[in-house]
Each structure stands twice: as structure tokens, then as C-alpha cells.
């Protein structure tokens, strides 16, 4: 196999077609044929995988470029039919609105607490938590709707770190922290909680934000400093 053919012939064979596919030099029609063959011919697919392995180290030369987050919203819209956010949503995005809402919600929580003493308590539909920590400039506000199982979190003060992610955790009683996901935007990040997780979000549950490597804690448990934490109250 190591014999080099004479100069006037084009070497051929499946292995070279596989290499050309991985390199990407083929014209569109041939590429489509090869892509179909990869799906149906396992031996050929193995040849392609082997060439891909050989060239993988060159991937280091693709420099990362930060991608605008709205692309993820469009992906979600295409996959899940979630609403792509309109370009401008002044009220929802306004920090003043959220600060106002935070205070209003806390006030409601206090009133609700007093009312529960004299009335038979009904299970709350909405929960709020104001999250902060000593020495941290970050203040956040969370609102959870038990019916839609949507938890909305917004940063009302402080900045999101550029080179780290803020990860949100739910701590119910003595259980270990449960990751709810990472904050995607300082305005509003919405987390849809699965039913078993939503059931843990009750009066007294703690929500906390920690600084984690980009993309979140690799281990599934918090690894970084707590920048904000707070207790959930039903309203």
C-alpha cells in the first residue's frame, strides 16, 4: 500500500474518497453522495472516522469567536416553538421595572405571611426570592410560577462575569444543591423546571448563584463562590 503510483495516474480508492470528504474539497454533488454512503456503509464510515481523527488536531487552529446569544433563542424557536424574543421589550428589560417588582413582590410576601396566620393557608401559586450575599455586588430577583413551572431570574444590580458563568442552584432542606442551569442574560433568564424539581421549590427553599467555569460546573456540584443567595417565599 505504500507504493506510489506512476505520475500520470490519479490514485483512487474508498480511503482517498473518505479523506477528500473529511478535507472538504469535493464538489457538492460528490459530497452529498459520500454523506449518504456514510449513513449506509459502516466500513466506509470507519474510513471517514479514521481520517477525521487524523485531522482533529488541526481543530485547535479554529479560534473561538463569541456568538451572539439571540442565535440560541432562534434555535430554541425552531426546535421547541418557543417565542423568539422581540427586538425590544422595554418594560420587561427595564431594571427599574424589575426593582419595582422585586420590592412589590417582597411586600406582597410579607402581607401574605401575615394573612396566613389568620386564614387557612392555600398552596401558593407564585414564589419569590431576593438573592444577595455579603461582599458581593450582585443582587438578583427570582419569581417562580407553580402553574407554568417557569422560574424567571433577573440581575437587578451588579454585572454578569465575562469569562465565567453564573449557575443557579436550588437547595431544599439538607439535600445537596441541584443545578437549575446557567444565567444567560442579565435581564431575564427563564428556567422551566421539571415537575420533580418544581415540587422542591417551596417556602424556605434556598436559591443560590455561584460563579462557575463557562457553561457551568463540570462536576454537577457548585465549585465557585456564592455571589447571591436567598430564601423562597410564597406569595
Amino acid at each position: 500500500m505504500s507504493t506510489t503510483p506512476p505520475d500520470d495516474t490519479v490514485p483512487d480508492g474508498d480511503d482517498l474518497v473518505a479523506a477528500e470528504y473529511v478535507l472538504g474539497v469535493l464538489p457538492i454533488d460528490e459530497r452529498r453522495d459520500v454523506a449518504r454512503r456514510i449513513e449506509t456503509d459502516k466500513d466506509f464510515a470507519r474510513l471517514v472516522a479514521r481520517w477525521q481523527d487524523h485531522f482533529d488536531p488541526l481543530n485547535d487552529q479554529f479560534e473561538p469567536v463569541s456568538a451572539p446569544y439571540h442565535i440560541k433563542d432562534q434555535v430554541d424557536h425552531r426546535l421547541f416553538g418557543t417565542e423568539a424574543p422581540p427586538l425590544q421589550m422595554p418594560l420587561w428589560n427595564s431594571v427599574i421595572f424589575w426593582r419595582g417588582l422585586a420590592f412589590a413582590a417582597l411586600a406582597l410576601a410579607l402581607i401574605g405571611f401575615g394573612r396566613d396566620i389568620i386564614q387557612r393557608p392555600t398552596p401558593p401559586i407564585q414564589f419569590v426570592a431576593s438573592m444577595a450575599a455579603d461582599g458581593s455586588p450582585v443582587r438578583t430577583m427570582a419569581i417562580f410560577d407553580n402553574q407554568t413551572r417557569k422560574l424567571k431570574v433577573t440581575v437587578v444590580a451588579g454585572d454578569m462575569p465575562q469569562d465565567h458563568s453564573l449557575e443557579l442552584w436550588l437547595i431544599a432542606g439538607n439535600e445537596s444543591p441541584l443545578s437549575l442551569g446557567i444565567m444567560k442574560s442579565p435581564q431575564v433568564t427563564e428556567f422551566t423546571l421539571p415537575q420533580p424539581v418544581a415540587a422542591k421549590l417551596q417556602n424556605g427553599t434556598t436559591l443560590a448563584l455561584t460563579v462557575e467555569p463557562v457553561g457551568g460546573s463540570p462536576s454537577g456540584a457548585p465549585t465557585g463562590a456564592i455571589v447571591a443567595a436567598g430564601t423562597v417565599r410564597g406569595i
Binding site: N59, F62, E63, P64, V65, S66, A67, I71, K72, V75, D76, F80, S165, S179, L180, G181, I182, K184, F191, T192, V214, G215, G216
Partner: peptide, 22 residues
């Protein structure tokens, strides 16, 4: 798992966007 999908996007989109751009 959509939360994992969000995290995957957050941790890999810069690399893949770099590939697209190049």
C-alpha cells in the same frame, strides 16, 4: 434535556462560531 442543551450552547458555541466564521 433542554437545560443541558443551554449549557452545551454556552460552553461550545464560541468554538463552533469560530469554525463557521473562518
Amino acid at each position: 434535556d433542554r437545560t443541558a442543551f443551554d449549557a452545551l450552547y454556552a460552553s461550545t458555541s464560541a468554538k463552533l462560531f469560530g469554525v463557521c466564521w473562518r
